[in-house]
Design a protein around this nucleic acid. Structure first.
Lengths: 177, 177
DNA sequence: CTTAACTGCAACACATGAGTCTCGTTTAGG
DNA sequence: CCTAAACGAGACTCATGTGTTGCAGTTAAG
């Protein structure tokens, strides 16, 4: 593939991410506009709307997998890993709303990583015993809320940023002392 | 308005509630089908799709206001009120997803009622100090998750039902001891 | 019973978005 | 410099959903 084609693909994906985060029903026309590309080009790179959505899901999922790795979810002290993972996600400015709005739920792999993390938190006594899937759901729901908080919210200052607030809140929610 | 017309309106609203909860982009045709009514009749009762959505929002809001009243949010011991309100909402089987999926956020009145409740919880020391709007957001987010839990989830048994789990989780999340 | 209201059905017009194609122009890269 | 690849622009088909209308049949209510 030629270099400019590759650039177009990247710009389309990026535009799709922001546009669809704002409105999951946005047209390909709109996505093309934001990407600075004709609608025909969107169709050239992605055979159908669904294909674009799939590519977007995969892209997001790859990022999440990278996050899990960077946060050392399997080896670092679990509270630290939880904080780190949260921090990275917020830094990535990943359009979180996209990943929940679309049917693109986190992949099995990402879910398993998260659930392992919560299992380790239980073993350490940082949270009460509960099914890992419930922990994961609570974590993601609270992440969504923290993500939407305005930058100047007092809670953020108190807890030392979004990651701090999220960790504090989720540990409390899951019965941590 | 004739009695059968009133019945139709009610059936349309009910169908819209369930159908749109499942898919916010469902067509009026689909809603009419579920209501057992021709699409034309939907248009006769509601001038436009937006008018139907507005009516639905108002309907939901009225129910929420009633819940606040029944739970004695302003006078009962706040933890009790929180539990009661949660219980009633779950009992109503209100399609919670609708009220968040659609732009139909809770009305100012309902929000104020909730925030008053959390202010009272703070005064009692049941939760840590935080902005009432943050408390409200956390509560509603967790309500959404509890709502989606399958009936046989172990967390539900442990906490004594959905309302119990929600109260326990939200109090913990907001720093309750 | 009688009538006015309600309904179902079918036919419209209209808008929007997906997907395809052509053609003339620009650009990357050997 | 030359060519194949990529692009923009525009026209087109097709599908779906909204909103409207007319009409014949049904039902509520005085």
């Amino acid at each position: 593939m030629r270099a400019d084609a590759e650039r177009s693909t990247a710009r389309i994906l990026e535009a799709a991410e922001t546009v669809l985060a704002d409105n999951p029903n946005a047209s390909l026309e709109r996505i093309g506009d934001v990407a600075g590309v004709a609608r025909a080009t969107v169709h050239r790179r992605f055979a159908s709307r669904q294909a674009l959505l799939d590519a977007l899901s995969e892209r997001l999922n790859d990022r999440y997998l990278l996050v899990m790795e960077q946060a050392k979810v399997e080896t670092a002290p679990p509270v630290i890993a939880l904080h780190r993972a949260s921090e990275i996600v917020f830094d990535l400015k990943i359009s979180y709303r996209f990943s929940i709005t679309l049917a693109s739920a986190p992949s099995r792999e990402v879910q398993d990583g998260l659930e392992l993390l919560f299992t380790r938190l239980q073993a350490e006594g940082a949270i009460a015993v509960a099914s890992p899937s419930w922990c994961r759901r609570v974590y993601l729901a609270l992440m969504g809320e923290v993500y939407l908080l305005p930058d100047d919210a007092p809670e953020l200052a108190d807890a030392g940023g979004r990651a701090g607030l999220l960790v504090k809140t989720v540990l409390g929610a899951l019965g941590g002392r």
